[in-house]
Structures are given as structure tokens and as C-alpha cells.
Design a protein around this nucleic acid. Structure first.
Lengths: 226, 226
DNA sequence: GGCAAATATGACAAAAATGTGAAAAAATCA
DNA sequence: TGATTTTTTCACATTTTTGTCATATTTGCC
């Protein structure tokens, strides 16, 4: 299996080194960022980061800021590093999409165990090939989609686009992002092509077509709320 | 059943990676050695190796040397990788206790088939030799296919391709995957060759040809649903 | 409400992918 | 070697998908 790439964001050089060493020893590829802004820069540059270890207390942009920013357009798993175990912090974080907490100081074993657990949870067999929400089941392996158990045919592009929506459930996706992720990078056509595909997907989804919300002036968002 | 551990000995990094990938994909544990001396070191260290894939041409200590050395004290099954099919080499090898030969370049299927055959011969059990679905029966050992009891002739490539389909029943197979798994790794021909073979297989399967579904923009899928 | 901008929709044409038959190339066999 | 079989390529027909456009509708905002 491919080595997972982990970004460690912490302002203390020593802490970064400790974490880096342990993760590297356990077969992970590690990238370091020393503050929130750098973390965002790296993240936007390098799209294949599998997990982020994020310290809360940092200069410039703190962990919460980074978290919010990233959650606007990605569901990459994030583990927060917190100095003390503060319950209110944790509650806030889970709402914002934190996957796990590690309280400093921690043992290397805990670190690796949590990282592995989160990665297993997020990229484990099931979650990778089968997307499921609100009665819509997409099987990427068999390339079959069922809506409330009924088989529905999707063309290649439609399939890819719907998959992208489901993989980013709850996230507002600007047209530019959609083009970048579902179309080839060398596609220079109209934005509006997306609209046409969305139209077709909505109609094929029947009742559930409404879950593809239009975000006026931005793009679309898949959300299973009425 | 316990995963078999296989040691791959070859000086070419690329070759090791190819073999490693395919064996790992097929559920084996793989250990790599990049020359004869390293192979012996590893073998003496790690006593529970179940099979060795041994390249003949290597610097320092070549495949024959490793073979002789290991045969002094072990009967571990050994498959030799040879660049060309040289009969005198093969005869020499069988005398020295070679279990099988694989001539480069080889297809992944051949690799896995030989490995499985040797392991079966040496450790018993195993049975992935007969594929059967919807009235189509393929015997990989005898290379005989029957459709509803009627014998149908398939050429080598057709047989391999159909077997690949049956082994992956229900899974959408991209053309690239098909090429990688059914053709040799050094095949750089057209995608469309697959189409031609599919055409022939479909016609030979008669009614059941329809079970090879076309997945537009992707490739094919074998599925016994109408 | 009315206006401007953005999105939805249906129709259509362009583009892309596949099916097919035949010929070329390669491998195999006698 | 020549003949035969298998495999690959090619050209063209066919099918499906995809993108664009014109028009209708909706939305945000004054």
C-alpha cells in the first residue's frame, strides 16, 4: 500500500522533529509547516496530503483558523494537537470537522495509534470504493449507482461529478474547483458546462436531486438537508 | 490460510517492483533482495520464506550460485527468472533443483499462476483453476472452455482475457488495467486491441456475449445480469 | 416591484468512444 | 521455408457523450 503523506503543523521546531521522526520510522512521509499560513500554502500546493496534524496554539494563524479554512474545501482528516485537555475546545472542534485529538504531552505509541486509526477510518476499504448518503449508493468498483435500491445509469462525466459531490458532502464547491477536480487540467471550456451536467444528475436522482444545492454566485453543494 | 512469503531476487529495481506489486496484490508477502549475496543473507536470517523468485543474471553472485548454495541445506521452492528461453540452462537448472522457470518478459498472470502452481505442488491444496459462471466453465489447467456444455475454442489471448473478466466478475475494468494484467508489462500497443478481442470473445460466447458489458469511457465489465 | 446578474432547461451539434470487418504484422507450425 | 493461426492495427460506421447556445426562470438587491 502507498505510503500516506502527513503534514505536521507546529511552531515548535522540537515538536515537529519528534513527530516527524516517529512517523517516518513508521513508514509515513512527513511534511512540516511551522505556522498556519505556511500550512495552507503547502496544502493548496500539494493536493495529495492524506492527514494533517495540527497544533492549536500558533502565531499568525492558529489551528482553528487553519481548520476552518481547509474545511471550506476539503475533508482531509485532521488531528488536533492540544496542550491541555479542554473539553470545550474539543466540542467546538468536532463540530468544525476535527477527526481526533491528541493531548500534549503524548507518547509516540499514542501518536501512531491515533494516526493509524484515523487513516483506517477515512481510507479503509469500504469508504474508498463505496459512497453512500441518503439512499444514494455509488460503487466505484462496479461503477453502479442505486437510488433507493433502484439502479440508475450515469455517464462517465456524470458519475465522476456525482462522486466528487458525495466525497465533499456539505462543502460548497466553487465552479473553478469542480472543473479542476472533475475535468482534466487542460480543459478550457465554459463554466456553464457544469450546470448542464448538474441538471442531468438532478433529474436522474429524482426526489434526491434537490440535495445538490445551488450556491448562488459560487457553485454547488451536496447536502442532505431540506 | 497463512500468507506465503516470497523472496524476489533481481538486480533491476524496476523488475523487483513489478513483481512485488503483483504478488502483493495477490495476497503474498514479498521480500526483496537486489543481488545473490543479499539473497543468501536474508534467507539465512529469515527461515520462513516459502518461495524464491531468482533472476539468473546478477552481479556478485548469480542465480546459479544462489541456487547451489541454498540447495545445500534447503528444499525451498525456487523459480528462476530467465531472460531468454535457453533449453540447456533449463536442463541444468532442473538437475540442481529448480522448480519452475519463467521467461522474461512475462505477464503478471503467468507469474502468479506459476507461483501458485509451485506452491500448490510443494504445499498442497489450492483451487483457483476452474472458473465457472452462468454456464461458462473455464479450466485453466487444461485450457478448455465450455459454454452450456459445448466446447468452445479460444486462442491464448482470448482465454487469458476471458479468464481475467471472470476473475473480476462485476468489477468495472479500465482498459489500462486490462492491458496491465493480461498483456506483458512491456506491451505498448493500442488500447483498441482489447476491443477487437472482446468482439471475438463476445461472438464466441454467443448469447452470453452480452455479459461482457461496455462501460463507456472506462472499459468493460463482466456481469451476468441482463 | 423592477432590474441586472446568475442559473435552469431543452435542443442541437461537435466530439469522443466503441463496434466492426478486413488487412497487416507477428508468431507458430509443419 | 511456406502455410497457418493468432494478434494487432487500421479505416470507417455507429453510438453515446459532452459542450454550447438560445431562451426561460430564478435570485439578490435597490
Amino acid at each position: 500500500m502507498k505510503k500516506s503523506k502527513i503534514m505536521v503543523v507546529d511552531d515548535e521546531q522540537r515538536m515537529r522533529k519528534i513527530i516527524n521522526d516517529f512517523l517516518t520510522k513508521n513508514g509515513y512521509t512527513v511534511i512540516e509547516a511551522c505556522d498556519g499560513e505556511e500550512a495552507l500554502d503547502i496544502f493548496y500546493e500539494d493536493s495529495d496530503i492524506d492527514l494533517i496534524l495540527l497544533d492549536i496554539m500558533m502565531p499568525k494563524l492558529d489551528g482553528w483558523g487553519v481548520l476552518k479554512e481547509i474545511r471550506k474545501e476539503s475533508k482531509v482528516p485532521i488531528i488536533m494537537l492540544t496542550a491541555r485537555s479542554d473539553e470545550s475546545d474539543e466540542l467546538l472542534g468536532f463540530d468544525l470537522g476535527v477527526d481526533e485529538y491528541i493531548t500534549k504531552p503524548f507518547s509516540p505509541k499514542i501518536l501512531v495509534a491515533r494516526v493509524e486509526a484515523v487513516l483506517r477510518r477515512t481510507q479503509g476499504v469500504g469508504s474508498k470504493d463505496i459512497l453512500e448518503t441518503a439512499g444514494i449508493v455509488m460503487n466505484k468498483l462496479t461503477h453502479v449507482v442505486t437510488v433507493d435500491g433502484e439502479n440508475v445509469e450515469f455517464s462517465y462525466k456524470e458519475f465522476e461529478l456525482l462522486a466528487y459531490f458525495l466525497e465533499n458532502e456539505g462543502i460548497a464547491l466553487p465552479r473553478a474547483n469542480i472543473l479542476n477536480n472533475v475535468w482534466n487540467y487542460d480543459y478550457y471550456g465554459e463554466d456553464r458546462t457544469i450546470d448542464t451536467h448538474v441538471k442531468k444528475i438532478r433529474s436522474k436522482l429524482g426526489d434526491k436531486g434537490k440535495y445538490i444545492k445551488t450556491i448562488w454566485g459560487i457553485g454547488y453543494k451536496f447536502e442532505t438537508v431540506d
